[in-house]
């Protein structure tokens, strides 16, 4: 009888090494700020017939400050600092709005800063974290814990190899998807991206 009562405890205890494994892995992704990486993003949206592609550079400036610079097709810089998003376009006056109203960015900030800062506990606060690992390739799946954010962003999937994240895929609740190719992969955006050819490019854990 006593043994039976212990089974749930045992199974709980067994999950711990896995969690600490994920934590140890996340710590390996740590980079000192400022950390910059080129990106190319394809957005598949219901309002569009074909995906929208932009490219530029993502930078973590330390703390909760993030910069997303778009170079093509039109130059635009978006900065996140102190809960405010400021968008600056060439020849336009800057536009600001609250991070609260842009859940996409909030999620991006939480995941990016936690990963680059090597902070698994912050990642765990904001998301339900699942790690799948192959020999080289790995996949982190993040599901937002905040119900308000989950209403808009259903999941983030980050694929990588070694200590380099290569792809970030953000799934919105309405079916829209944004796929970012990061680092070396950023130059490999297909001329006509599809969900399938991008998935193949990203690879990820088997």
């Amino acid at each position: 009888m006593l043994i039976l009562a212990l089974i749930p405890l045992l199974s709980y205890a067994r999950s711990t090494p896995e969690a600490s494994d994920a934590n140890a892995f996340i710590a390996t992704l740590k980079r000192p700020p400022p950390a910059r990486t080129p990106f190319a993003e394809a957005r598949f949206m219901r309002v569009l017939d074909k995906p929208l592609v932009v490219s530029g550079e993502l930078a973590w400036l330390g703390g909760d400050r993030l910069e997303r610079r778009v170079d093509a097709p039109n130059r635009e810089t978006a900065t996140i600092a102190d809960g405010e998003v400021t968008q600056q376009r060439e020849g336009k006056k800057p536009r600001s709005f609250s991070l609260q109203r842009a859940p996409q960015l909030k999620v991006l900030l939480d995941s990016f800063v936690a990963l680059l800062g090597g902070d698994p506990s912050r990642l765990g606060d904001a998301f339900d974290v699942k790690l799948a690992r192959g020999d080289v390739h790995w996949t982190l799946t993040l599901t937002p814990r905040d119900a308000r954010i989950a209403k808009q962003i259903s999941a983030i999937r980050i694929d990588g190899a070694g200590t380099e994240p290569g792809c970030m895929r953000m799934e919105e609740a309405d079916g829209d998807v944004a796929i970012d190719l990061l680092g070396d992969l950023a130059t490999k955006m297909p001329a006509t991206p599809t969900r399938e050819n991008l998935a193949a490019l990203c690879g990820g854990a088997p």
Binding site: E41, R43, M45, V47, L48, L52, V54, R68, V70, P73, N74, E76, A78, I80, V85, Q87, R89, R95, F97, R101, A102, P103, Q104, L105, L108, Q152, E172, D176
Partner: peptide, 17 residues
């Protein structure tokens, strides 16, 4: 279109149509 490629996309795409 620029807006849709920007972080403000979620904010605006509902208004767009």
């Amino acid at each position: 279109l620029d807006d849709l490629g920007s972080p403000a996309a979620t904010l605006l795409k509902g208004l767009l149509p």
